[in-house]
Design a protein around this nucleic acid. Structure first.
Length: 957
RNA sequence: GGGCAAGUGGCGGAAUGGCAGACGCGCACGGUUCAGGUCCGUGUGUCCGAGAGGACGUGGGGGUUCAAGUCCCCCCUUGCCCA
């Protein structure tokens, strides 16, 4: 924006694109963008609709990142990779004629700020807001095109008011299995009152009907139907953190994801969300999304659908229902196993051991009841994870009774064993030791019979055979599965079970309901109070937000890591002036007790994308018209959603599953028109870095390591090179600030985008950044004379070679931009630049049309440089709103092409032919080439393949 | 153990089944420069050959095809997810 005219002390031309000039240009344009509101995205209606006329005829594009947690450490060069990917995309789409929404916000509730607050006494809001300010300054300096009017943090009361409102919607809804969707809870009450619907199984008190219940009992029944409900069940209690955790927050070895403290299963009353009701839709709708296959697979695995059958076994007057994924092996079932906690255990247990009871089955107890009691106690001390661990010695005791196999009439002894879990399937299994490893191990320990029903290969000498093969030993008078394959056998036996009333096909899921309450301070308070009956009541919308109260002590009560019997005590429970409140909820002023748990960290990120579309609305969580405009389906059957969502793969199951669940609830209740939140999702790669350790194994500062003759040296001493995540502990952090100071933001942007496709991880290499700086300096030199500062663009027509180079570059750059392979876009821009540097040496005029196109091509990648050159080329408006070049077809094809001539697949010659030459012409031209003649001499040509525009291949014998 | 993804020069990486290694880094040589940790140019897969040229070459093995980095099967290695 300003011309440097200082003389040069060091031989550098006065108007060269140096880092100092880049800095100056970048800061000036960032100020101008802000002053002019260049990146303000107009909404069709409402307070942000100013300027919509300008974009009314454009298709919309909603592009966003997973918003960051504002950590105090700031950003290193790995963080902006995704942010720059969406920035280049949004700038490209704006230039290509879209109305682009590219916002950014902060996911600001969470543990680190709270833990810092506990240590320092500083309110978490203070540190969090300081961190937000620091990160936004870093983002601004990168030159990203966020509409900052739409920026918010999840801790803003104006935002979490609506997080609470959505919780209320979930609380005030139930899932109707008949229509497979959520409905308002009031409709359930109406149907129950009218007798047109029965309460869900297990929700009524034993032996009573809805009509007989008292009002309080009825409320308990209704509460048990809600999508957000309180439930006493074994949950993950983490004494070290003083809070409960969701399954998703517990690692495979039974510790907390944050802090790595031991986690115990304990029955506690907690808020749950009924995500399991949506398991089927969450799996099925993956097929309608533009996500990577691996990511979809992770979600499928997490939800864990397995299809199989429920089979009913009569046992001494009762019926035990088992779930199996292998009903085809029913002929091989030789015993049953119930989870030790199975509700029928007590009723089934025999009074005395039958005569001749196997001592291995009785655990030496005098009676079955004694054995069962001892075993149940032992099992309760084991974690669920421990119980599932393979290879552990199998244990169990007999109940003293037998069940009848409906196919064979064989009597099957019934056991309890801790390898069967209550939470999965029906909590009972039919054991098929011939085809199941765990059943085999159990059968070996207890001396139980094995019947093989799948033919193993001849050389199979193992125990359980879990592979495929034809069915054997599987027939009775009515039914034979022998010889069938697995799928046919499953279908056949399931049909028989249904016909004989012994079972039916069914589907189960591994997914559990979402544990939604935490005993923490720094989270959204629940919009819930408890009345005199100790039942939950939602705080009405008019009283939202329920503000987080000020407290003296932010810490939950924590306990010794291994104190499994400790009780949760949330920090808010100590804010006694806040916890008790008098409200008039329609029955006159009454005293209520507030919920003192807070929502989990994931709540705020479940719907933030919706708020970007209407960030200032204080009447609704989002204006339906704005949701339809930015998120709505494009055609009937389309799921809608954000057009491009970029973020780390670490959120593959947690955030992405929770957000999809909330979105579907909001869809069912009619609050949004889109069925899914994120239409297209891309996981950006990671940037890792080399780290160096000295002879003692300690990391040394990576920046000070030098390479000499393939050896790495630090202060003259050889060091060992390792490769890992960028971080303080490895002393290998590089920050964007350092890179910007060294080269400017544009160079940093181009370098990050040039090292590979967006979804690929790559190592950071500071010394390679200079390549991007050189490219931008060459582009500058094409437009600006380094010596005089004059613009080199002149009114000359480009020659044909230049036109072809330009239009090929345009075509390839567009392709790279739309497929997020910015590296190939940059490679083609480099080729074009190199061509122009050669074709138009300093002192000659560069065709204006070509120079301008080059600037437009690079504008999404290096926006400040492009703005400066665009303005020097005489344009008043921002290049961000200029039209992105469109390739002309006539320049994409050559008049003549070089075609490879192969003999038996090996390239032997090149011939030039007209681009539109047909196969015959190609062959004739190839045969006329002297090298080809020499190759074919004395040989029989058996076949000729000529592909127009590609090659000719002679197959000779 | 199961599932998914990926293995291409010294490095990051290109390549609708059709001339492997685009583009960049690094390196070598040359030029500019008082100087170079500047800039510009040329070269750079491996082996043989002075050269022209030739042979080999995309983790390993097999297959499909006129033609395979690309498609299929088996194996090895690495990464991620789930156990």
């Amino acid at each position: 924006m300003s011309q440097t005219t200082e003389p040069t002390a060091d031989g550098v031309p006065p108007h060269r694109y140096t880092p100092a000039l880049a800095q100056q240009i970048e800061l000036a344009w960032q100020d101008r963008w802000e002053a002019e509101g260049t990146f303000h995205t107009p909404n069709p209606v409402g307070p942000l609709s100013e300027g919509f006329d300008r974009v009314a005829d454009r298709p919309k594009a909603f592009v966003m990142d997973m918003f960051p947690y504002p950590s105090g450490a700031g950003l290193h060069v790995g963080h902006p990779l995704g942010y720059l990917g969406t920035d280049v995309t949004s700038r490209f789409l704006r230039m290509d004629g879209r109305n682009v929404l590219h916002p950014m916000g902060y996911d600001a509730f969470g543990l680190p700020a709270e833990q810092f607050a506990v240590q320092t006494g500083q309110h978490p809001r203070v540190t969090t807001e300081a961190n937000i300010a620091a990160i936004s300054a870093q983002l601004r300096r990168l030159g990203v095109d966020h509409d900052t009017r739409r920026t918010f943090a999840t801790i803003d009361p104006g935002y979490y008011k609506w997080t609470q409102w959505i919780f209320r919607q979930v609380f005030e809804a139930w899932f109707d299995p008949e229509t497979d969707r959520a409905r308002p809870i009031t409709e359930l009450v109406t149907e129950l009152d009218a007798g047109t619907r029965q309460p869900a199984p297990g929700t009524l008190p034993e032996g009573q009907s809805w009509a007989e219940l008292s009002p309080v009992e009825r409320r308990r029944v209704v509460d048990a139907h809600r999508l957000a409900y309180r439930h006493s069940a074994p949950v993950n209690w983490c004494p070290g953190l003083g809070t409960v955790l969701s399954n998703e927050e517990v690692t495979a070895d039974g510790r907390s994801e944050r802090g790595n403290f031991p986690v115990f299963r304990r029955p506690l009353t907690q808020w749950m969300m009924r995500i399991t009701a949506y398991a089927e839709r969450l799996i099925d709708d993956l097929d309608r999304l533009d996500w990577s296959d691996s990511l979809k697979q992770m979600q499928r695995n997490w939800i864990g659908r397995s299809t199989g059958a429920r089979v009913r076994f009569p046992v001494s007057g009762e019926t035990v229902e088992v779930f199996t994924t292998r009903p085809d092996t029913l002929f091989g079932a030789t015993y049953l196993v119930l989870a030790p906690e199975h509700p029928l255990v007590e009723a089934l247990t025999a009074d005395v051991w039958p005569d001749g009871a196997d001592p291995r089955w009785t655990a030496g107890a005098a009676t079955p009841a004694e054995a069962v009691e001892a075993y149940q106690l032992q099992a309760s001390r084991r974690s669920e994870l421990e119980r599932q661990t393979e290879g552990r010695d199998k244990t169990g005791v007999w109940l003293g009774v037998t069940a009848t196999n409906p196919l064979t009439q064989r009597q099957l002894p019934v056991f309890i064993a801790d390898y069967v879990l209550t939470g999965y399937g029906t909590g009972a299994i039919m054991a098929v030791p011939g085809e199941d490893t765990r059943d085999w191990e159990f059968a070996q320990v207890l001396g139980l019979p094995v019947v093989r029903t799948v033919q193993p290969p001849a050389d199979f000498d193992g125990g359980a055979y879990t592979g495929t093969g034809p069915m054997i030993n599987s027939s009775n008078e009515q039914l034979s599965l022998d010889g069938l394959d697995k799928a046919t056998a499953i279908a056949t036996v399931t049909e028989w079970l249904v016909a004989n009333g012994c079972g039916e096909a069914t589907t189960t899921y591994k997914l559990r309901d979402w544990l939604f309450s935490r005993q923490r301070y720094w989270g959204e308070p629940f919009p819930i109070v408890y009345d005199a009956d100790d039942l939950p009541v939602a705080v009405p919308d008019s009283m939202l937000p329920v503000l987080l109260p000020e407290v003296d002590d932010y810490s939950p009560k924590t306990f010794a890591d291994d104190d499994a019997d400790s009780q949760p005590e949330p920090p808010l429970s100590r804010a006694t002036e806040w916890t008790t409140v008098t409200l008039d909820l329609g029955e006159g002023p009454q005293e209520y007790r507030r919920e003192t748990n807070t929502m989990p960290n994931w709540a705020g990120s479940c719907w933030y994308y919706l708020r970007y579309t209407d960030p200032t609305n204080d009447q609704q969580f989002v204006d339906p018209e704005l949701e339809r405009y930015w998120m709505g389906p494009r055609e009937p059957g389309d799921v809608g959603g954000v057009d491009l969502y970029v973020g780390g793969v670490e959120h593959a199951v947690l955030h992405l599953l929770y957000a999809r669940f909330w979105h579907k609830v909001l869809f069912d209740l009619g609050h949004v028109s889109s069925e899914e939140p994120f239409r297209r999702l891309v996981n950006q790669g990671y940037i890792s870095a080399y780290a160096y350790t000295d002879s003692r194994g300690f990391p040394v500062p990576a920046a000070d390591v030098v390479e000499r003759d393939g050896q790495f040296l630090y202060e003259g001493q050889p060091v060992h090179r390792e490769y890992g995540k960028m971080g303080k502990s490895l002393k290998n952090v590089v920050t964007p600030d350092e890179m910007i100071a060294m080269y400017g933001a544009d160079t940093f942007r181009v370098y990050e985008m040039s090292t590979g496709p967006l979804d690929q991880s790559r190592p950071w290499e500071t010394k390679a950044v200079v390549g991007s700086a050189r490219l931008l300096a060459r582009i500058w030199r094409v437009v600006v004379d380094e010596e005089t500062g004059e613009v080199r663009a002149g009114d000359v027509e480009p020659d044909d070679d230049t036109s072809r180079a330009l239009h090929r570059a345009i075509e390839a750059v567009r392709d790279g931009m739309t497929t997020l392979r910015f590296n190939i876009a940059i490679a083609r821009i480099t080729e074009l630049t190199n061509h122009l540097t050669q074709a138009f040496p300093p002192g000659t005029a560069v065709p204006r049309s070509v120079a301008e196109s080059l600037v437009l091509l690079v504008a999404p990648l290096a926006p400040h440089l492009a703005e400066e050159l665009w303005s020097r080329l005489g344009h008043a408006g921002s290049v961000a709103w200029a039209q992105f070049p469109v390739a002309e077809d006539r320049w994409l094809v050559d008049d003549t092409v070089e075609v490879a001539v192969q003999v038996n697949g090996k390239v032997r010659a090149q011939v030039a032919v007209p681009a539109d030459a047909d196969a015959a012409t190609l062959e004739a031209a190839a045969r006329a080439d002297e090298k080809v003649v020499a190759q074919l001499e004395g040989k029989t040509v058996r076949r000729v393949i000529a592909v127009p525009g590609r090659l000719v291949n002679f197959v000779v014998g």
